[in-house]
Write a protein that binds this DNA or RNA. Sequence first.
DNA 1: CGTGCCAGGTGCCTT
DNA 2: AAGGCACTTGGCACG
Lengths: 290, 290
Amino acid sequence: MTATTVHEPTHREALWELEDAFERGDLITIFGRCTVEYDGRAASSLGLGRRLLLLKPDGTALVHTDEKQKPVNWQPPGSEHHAAVRDGRLRVRSVRTSPDETLDVHFETVEQLSAMAVSGRRDLSVTGSEADLRNALLDRPAVIESGFEPLATERPTDAGPIDLFGRDTDGRPVVVELKRRRVGPSAASQLQRYVAAIEREDGDDAAVRGILVAPSVTDRARRLLAEHGLEFVAVEPPSSTGDAGGSTTLDTELSQTDAVDDSAHDPAGDATGDDDGEPARTLSADEESH
Amino acid sequence: MTATTVHEPTHREALWELEDAFERGDLITIFGRCTVEYDGRAASSLGLGRRLLLLKPDGTALVHTDEKQKPVNWQPPGSEHHAAVRDGRLRVRSVRTSPDETLDVHFETVEQLSAMAVSGRRDLSVTGSEADLRNALLDRPAVIESGFEPLATERPTDAGPIDLFGRDTDGRPVVVELKRRRVGPSAASQLQRYVAAIEREDGDDAAVRGILVAPSVTDRARRLLAEHGLEFVAVEPPSSTGDAGGSTTLDTELSQTDAVDDSAHDPAGDATGDDDGEPARTLSADEESH
DNA sequence: CGTGCCAGGTGCCTT
DNA sequence: AAGGCACTTGGCACG
């Protein structure tokens, strides 16, 4: 049996089971009436109630109620779990250092205690990240702008690494900041910092352009972009469902190593057209008043 | 009994128990060998392995392994849980809309299924937040600067709400941005946006000062502050280390004013605020509400 | 280990 | 509902 459970144990029985489970490196769940106190980076206290305590062999401790996704209290991995019986009651204490933090769970009653041997693949691959978006744009740089030439990704600057750096058809340096979701003012500020850093470092007389690539942008961010002469290109992240008007959709089905050249495969009906103002994809922030 | 558990049920038995537990609004844990697939804002797939599935009556679904604090897969509150037996195996599906997201857990074997009736106080009071820091500073504005006069908190601007707004002894407007942790460049940008907003809105000829209040600042952020003529004041956030008692003591340490640029308005000495000659006072940011 | 930044961030609150 | 932001953010990658 890979899962052992005791129902309504005495506090001392629970303690024995707990220590055995710690020994085996099991994943442990304890359900019962308890109080919770946390003290460390902040401090909190939680009155008596039925909750689920989840203890992981890596030192994680999670206190869950019947609501919300986040635990009401927790302790990060690397903490040390200790169990003891004080005043006839089970106390589970999870401690870590730097910063010093302590989580105490005092059980009034233990209704159930389970110990499970957990194993299995933990390799989870998530697609749809910003890195995926970047790769898609490297495959099709024209999505950003016709003739845009990528030169570097994660180019380091004084202000931090630039998502995508390149040149436009006029040879002007272009800083591209990628966001996979609708962006607020902070992203505009971030782009502005990068542009300023490149202007300082390269010291070129050629003005540095800054382009924010995201599905959409909030009003404040749009104004902030305009203030700094930055641009915005609407691009839906890869593998996203639905299509918002005026934005380009990237499909990353090119994961096959064979580079199927589908450059002619342009789904949008709008002309790939002349380089005079084509507002469908690239819009200058100071002209698009909405 | 408030917790019912079945060990190694058949998939069909597990389904019955599950549906009963859904009906009762129980907190449910399922432990077994399973695969997990998620598709929505992103997409992921997880191969066969022993994991713990936690289903909450509010629609939350969490898949936990033996490591890490965050679940390896999840579904936020408001989702709908569905259970079914397909090909003789239990499948738990959690779905939500806007955005459309689906989480599928296919069980090869169900080793344990528990249903628990959870109730209890959920009122958690956390001290040490940014709001606490702000209250402490309202009590002792001299910590920011001798003679600083707070005028408003959360003052709205075009760039968003300002944490703390006031005037210095010369009557110049001061924008204060509070952070409870060591800050990076984004906080400096945020402060800069607020200062610019106030300068636009008030249109005063009096230059607007910006002060970042935080425990410490990274190098890049420091340089960024200097660039924009912004200032930094080191203040430790209220912490409750050393006392596990009921009332949280917030001892706000007084640190030296650290004017970043040389055009410092108030260099050296008197900003240490020793003019009020008080021993470090304990500031209660939170009335004993329970 | 600190620094910086993305995240399927989550949660809270205001407009 | 959308926007803006704090968070015991968590987690990762890099110097």
